[in-house]
Design a binder for these strands. Structure first.
Length: 342
DNA sequence: TAGGCCATCTGGTCCT
DNA sequence: AGGACCAGATGGCCTA
């Protein structure tokens, strides 16, 4: 089981790493071109704008330094330093000549450009991290801090699975993923997981409810449990983890599993500045299509191999620009779902 | 309008 | 001296 998980996931990870390296090189080359020209121009503009201020400050430094040097000389004269300020250590500051001022400005501009590049690299790395944690969306990105938190939880969850050698229940898994996340992100992650597990459960229930947890299908302490499958009194929007369920309607109702007891509703906790809800809507739509194409009554293929082998989904996915990447991502973290189900 | 998030600038520190 | 890294400050944008 574990070896299968590794054999399926590792090629994807390696491919991602290779893609990233290639992309990174490309970005790097581009940035070298752009940053050093456009950004330096930008810096020059800024520098010209702030030059008067800087020069005045530096001029002020000049005077200060002369005073400091005089003071230091006085300190030297007062070796015992009784009552005087402690003598400054380290190299003495040199006077800021016009040439030194100019050099300092150039150095500062170059440092700014480097800092920008560094932050861009950091952001690129964060983008790549977003792609390998659950619930990736190209259009509605997780914030930096949420990405890091989710990545940490994801790693811990995977480690826990590997250590125990057995699948946790879905609720535990979602709880591990969502630990410390903001409410909107929690909803997003829970929503993604719910869909994946929902598909599985739906299949299982259709097959005669082979998979059951105590009570409702999930025994979910939150309200994100599968209402279609369990409670006819489900009220979307109620509870701390209520999901934006509207998205289920169009893509889902067309399916054979649509249920009349489901009323689309917006949960207030799911709306965020990042439009995560609307984005998750897309994810939901997409996930449904994806799952519908890669599952069958008797053969559920959640894993990446299944997705690759299915071959059909690529032509049938909805026209969202971020869908393809989500496909890739879905294939990856659905490997984990495959782990749940094998 | 407040708060969250982000990009950028900047000065300090450490290292080579 | 210069580069990498870091953290604080600042202003812009967006959303509730």
């Amino acid at each position: 089981m574990l070896s299968r998980l590794f054999s399926e996931v590792l090629p994807d990870v390696q491919r991602l790493a290779a893609d990233w390296a290639e992309e990174h090189e490309h970005e790097k080359a581009k940035e070298d071109d752009n940053d050093t020209s456009a950004l330096m121009e930008n810096d020059l503009d800024d520098a010209q704008e702030g030059s008067s201020r800087a020069e005045s400050e530096l001029a002020g430094d000049d005077e200060d330094e002369e005073e400091e040097e005089e003071a230091e000389e006085e300190d030297c004269g007062d070796e015992n330093g009784l009552g005087g300020k402690p003598k400054k250590r380290g190299p003495k500051k040199r006077k800021m000549t016009a040439e030194r001022v100019e050099r300092s400005k150039v150095r500062r501009m170059k440092a700014n450009a480097r800092e920008r590049t560094r932050m861009h690299d950091l952001n690129s790395a964060l983008d790549n991290l977003r792609k390998v944690v659950p619930c990736y969306s190209k259009t509605q990105k997780l914030s930096k801090i949420e990405t890091l938190r989710l990545a940490k939880n994801y790693i811990l969850a995977l480690g826990e699975i590997l250590r125990n050698g057995k699948r946790p229940d879905v609720v535990t898994y979602v709880q591990m993923l969502c630990k410390g996340l903001s409410q909107p992100t929690t909803n997003l992650v829970a929503g993604c997981m719910q869909l994946n597990t929902r598909n599985y459960l739906t299949e299982q229930c259709a097959d005669g409810a082979r998979f059951h947890m105590a009570g409702s299908p999930f025994s979910v302490p939150y309200s994100y449990r599968c209402s279609r499958l369990s409670s006819p009194h489900y009220q979307p929007g109620a509870g701390p983890l209520s999901l934006r369920a509207q998205s289920y309607s169009s893509a889902y109702e067309a399916s054979e599993y649509s249920s009349p007891d489901y009323e689309a509703a917006h949960s207030p906790v799911c709306s965020s500045r990042q439009h995560e809800s609307s984005d998750s809507d897309r994810n939901y739509h997409y996930s449904m299509h994806y799952s519908g194409l890669t599952t069958s009554r008797n053969n559920i293929s959640f894993g990446s191999s299944g997705a690759r082998n299915s071959g059909a989904h690529a032509e049938n996915i909805p026209p969202f620009h971020d869908v393809h990447l989500h496909h890739d991502r879905g294939a990856q973290y659905e490997d984990l779902n495959a782990f749940f189900h094998n």
